[in-house]
């Protein structure tokens, strides 16, 4: 029983970690309608920035978020402005896919060039110490990540529902032409949203860096899992991505223990494929305009 509880706790903590990566991805997809294949590399860039800042200035990695998140915001905004926006009217979707795939490939290999294939360990500053919650052992860093993920989801929801800009973002996503007729500058909204999505993963990267060794290819693993969470939770839904991430975290932990750690990913991706093919609106049936999926 203890083992089971421990595994569930591990799964939930892992889920929180996936969530903080997935939230930005689903935000960008839901609003800009672009699947950002480079999202994992945004995480990777954020983790290297955290590593460099926290080692270079000898500060707690969490503090670097104050610089990393804005830096990622700029990276995301530039991506939208320079790479995606010129392609928004493209007739074929493949150009947008290739654009972010190209960005992903370029960033990953740039990191290889600059940092080499060796891993970089961000100093832990105590976040890898364990705490006992009843019977289960958890790293304090995992708790922080989990808490941050919840706050991020709530904060984003409030922003989207309660502020004028948030409403404008939602309006643009639901009907771009009508939004323009309301006086909304859709291009600005897209740049803002892409920036926000990247800033979310920037925040995440500062929290994740002390827990995971940073390497140029770390993004690939996380982005694929994040895609799974996003599809599971209903594309474009922020709370959906959070709960999707928790489910995937649990599946990962449980299948790792009961089926075999080398088959965890197969289980996760099989679930992903089943959802994608059988219920593309996601597990929680969020109402979403799935213009990409035929009826």
């Amino acid at each position: 029983m203890d083992t089971f509880l421990q595994i569930v706790a591990n799964g939930l903590m892992l889920g929180g970690l996936f969530a903080i990566v997935a939230v930005g991805l689903t935000l960008i997809f839901g609003i800009v309608k672009v699947i950002n294949f480079a999202h994992g590399e945004f995480l990777m860039v954020g983790m290297y920035l955290t590593f460099l800042l926290s080692t270079g200035m000898d500060v707690h990695p969490y503090l670097t978020a104050a610089a990393v998140a804005p830096a990622l915001f700029v990276l995301g905004a530039l991506t939208q402005r320079l790479l995606i926006q010129p392609l928004m009217s493209a007739r074929d979707e493949h150009v947008q896919i290739f654009a972010t795939v190209g960005l992903s490939t370029a960033l990953m290999n740039l990191a290889l060039l600059v940092f080499g294939a060796d891993i970089a360990n961000t100093p832990a500053h105590g976040v890898r110490s364990q705490v006992m919650l009843g019977e289960v052992r958890i790293l304090t860093g995992q708790l922080w990540v989990f808490g941050a993920a919840i706050l991020l989801v709530i904060g984003l929801q409030l922003f989207m529902k309660k502020t004028r800009t948030g409403r404008a973002i939602r309006a643009t996503a639901q009907n771009r032409a009508a939004a323009r007729l309301m006086g909304i500058n859709d291009k600005f909204i897209y740049i803002l949203t892409f920036g926000l999505g990247a800033a979310c993963v920037g925040l995440g990267s500062s929290l994740i860096a002390p827990l995971y060794p940073t390497s140029p290819t770390i993004g690939t693993y996380f982005v694929l899992i994040a895609f799974v969470c996003v599809v599971l939770g209903g594309l474009g839904s922020i709370p959906g991505a959070f709960f999707g991430a928790l489910v995937i975290g649990l599946v990962d932990a449980l299948s790792g223990f009961y089926i075999g750690s080398d088959l965890r990913e197969a289980v996760v991706f099989t679930i992903f494929l089943l959802i994608l093919i059988l219920k593309p609106s996601g597990l929680f049936g969020t109402r979403m305009n799935l213009s990409h999926v035929s009826p």
Partner: peptide, 11 residues
């Protein structure tokens, strides 16, 4: 006021 209403359906 555009043709076909063009409301924001999920708002």
């Amino acid at each position: 006021i555009p043709e076909g209403r063009q409301l924001f359906p999920d708002m």
